[in-house]
Amino acid sequence: DFYKILGVPRSASIKDIKKAYRKLALQLHPDRNPDDPQAQEKFQDLGAAYEVLSDSEKRKQYD
């Protein structure tokens, strides 16, 4: 669930989604977690979630 990945409720605004994405991107970035083999995958999932939820048309289709 993309909302769960970003840690935001379904009613979150685009601004809230962007804020959550930036915070998590810093935490999950593979360069900051060189010892975590799943860091790259988590970071890619985060990017996919943000791409869908930050675009109003894609978000409507997802919901």
Rank of each mutant, 00 (worst) to 15 (best):
L46V: 12
S11H: 04
K58I: 03
A49M: 02
K15R: 14
A20I: 03
D45H: 10
P37Q: 10
Y21P: 03
G47F: 15
V8D: 02
D35F: 10
K15N: 14
K18C: 08
P34Q: 14
K4C: 08
V52H: 08
E51W: 05
L46D: 01
S11D: 15
K23G: 10
L28C: 11
P34K: 13
P37M: 09
L6E: 02
A48P: 03
K23Q: 05
K19L: 11
I14T: 14
A20E: 06
S11Y: 09
G7Q: 11
Q38L: 13
D45F: 07
R32C: 14
D55V: 07
D35E: 11
K4N: 13
D45A: 10
K60P: 02
S13L: 04
P37E: 10
K23R: 14
F2N: 07
H29K: 09
L28V: 10
I14H: 13
V52A: 12
R59V: 00
L46T: 02
G7M: 04
R59L: 01
P37K: 13
A12I: 02
P30C: 04
L24S: 07
N33M: 05
Y3A: 00
L6N: 01
R22K: 14
L53G: 01
L24C: 09
I14C: 15
Q38G: 14
F43N: 03
A20D: 01
R22M: 15
I17N: 01
P30M: 03
A20H: 07
L26K: 15
G7W: 00
Q44F: 13
S56A: 14
R10A: 15
A39L: 06
D1K: 02
K15A: 13
G47T: 09
K18G: 09
I14W: 06
D36R: 04
A25D: 04
I5Q: 07
K18Q: 13
D45E: 15
L46F: 03
Q61G: 11
L53I: 03
Q61H: 12
A12T: 05
S13M: 07
L26F: 14
R10C: 08
F43H: 12
Y21A: 03
K58C: 09
I5W: 04
A39T: 04
R32M: 09
F2K: 04
Y62N: 01
D63N: 05
P30G: 01
A12N: 00
V8W: 00
G7F: 00
P37V: 11
K58Y: 05
K19R: 15
E57S: 10
R22I: 10
V8R: 00
S11P: 01
R59F: 03
N33S: 11
Y3S: 03
A25F: 07
H29R: 12
A48G: 07
R32N: 14
R32L: 13
R10H: 08
Y50T: 01
L6K: 01
D16G: 06
Y21M: 03
S54T: 04
E57N: 05
D1R: 03
K4L: 04
L28D: 06
Q44I: 06
D45T: 14
Y62M: 03
S56C: 13
L24A: 10
S11M: 05
K42N: 12
R32G: 09
V52M: 06
L6P: 02
Q27A: 14
A12K: 01
L26S: 10
P34L: 12
D45N: 15
E51S: 09
D45R: 13
K4F: 05
Y21K: 04
R10W: 04
K19G: 15
L28E: 11
I14K: 15
R22V: 12
I5K: 08
Y50D: 03
I17T: 02
R32A: 11
D36N: 15
S56Q: 11
G47S: 13
Q44E: 11
Q44K: 12
A39G: 06
R10G: 06
A25I: 14
G7A: 07
Q44V: 11
L53T: 00
F2G: 03
S11V: 06
A49P: 00
L46Q: 01
A49S: 03
N33D: 04
H29I: 06
Y21T: 02
L24G: 06
L6Y: 00
A49Q: 00
L53S: 01
A49I: 06
K23W: 06
L26P: 13
A25G: 06
A12C: 10
A25Y: 15
R32P: 02
I5L: 13
K60F: 12
N33A: 07
D36V: 06
F43I: 07
L26N: 15
D31L: 09
D31S: 10
N33I: 05
L6V: 04
R22L: 13
Q61E: 15
L28R: 09
K18E: 15
E51V: 07
K19T: 12
K58F: 06
L53Y: 00
D1L: 04
F2T: 03
S11E: 15
K23H: 11
D35A: 12
K60S: 15
A48K: 14
K23N: 08
K58N: 02
Y21Q: 03
K23C: 13
A12G: 04
D36W: 05
S11Q: 15
R22E: 14
L26A: 15
A48W: 09
A12D: 00
Y50L: 08
D31Q: 08
K58Q: 07
V52W: 06
F43G: 02
E51P: 01
Q38N: 08
A48F: 08
A12E: 03
A39R: 08
R22G: 11
K18D: 12
K60D: 12
D1Q: 04
P30D: 02
D35N: 10
P37F: 06
Q61Y: 13
L53W: 03
F43L: 08
Q44Y: 07
G47L: 11
L24R: 12
Q61T: 08
Q38I: 05
V52L: 06
E51L: 08
D31W: 05
L26C: 06
K15G: 15
Y62H: 06
S11G: 15
K19M: 15
L28A: 07
E57G: 14
D16R: 15
D45Q: 14
R10N: 13
S13F: 02
L46M: 08
Y50R: 02
I17E: 01
Y3K: 03
Q61L: 11
Y21E: 03
S11C: 09
A12P: 00
D35C: 11
E57A: 11
I17H: 04
L6I: 07
K19I: 04
S13V: 06
P37S: 11
K4S: 11
L53R: 00
V8L: 08
I17W: 00
H29D: 13
K42C: 06
L24N: 05
K58T: 06
V52R: 04
E51R: 08
F2Q: 05
K15Q: 13
P9F: 06
D55A: 05
V8P: 01
L46H: 01
A48S: 12
R22Q: 14
R32W: 04
G7D: 08
D31G: 12
L24T: 06
A12L: 00
E41V: 10
P37T: 11
Q61R: 13
D35S: 10
K42Y: 02
A49N: 00
I14V: 12
D45Y: 09
D55C: 11
D55R: 05
A20K: 09
L6S: 02
K4E: 04
D36M: 07
H29M: 08
A20N: 12
Y3M: 00
P34C: 06
D36G: 04
Q61F: 15
K18H: 12
L24D: 04
S56E: 14
D36L: 06
K4P: 01
D31K: 12
Q38S: 11
S13Q: 10
Y50P: 00
K60H: 15
R32E: 07
L24Q: 11
A48N: 11
A12R: 01
P37A: 13
L24P: 01
P9L: 09
L28T: 09
Q61S: 07
S54P: 05
L53Q: 01
P34D: 09
Q38M: 12
Q61V: 14
R22P: 03
Y3W: 02
D35T: 15
D55L: 02
I14P: 10
A25C: 05
Y50C: 03
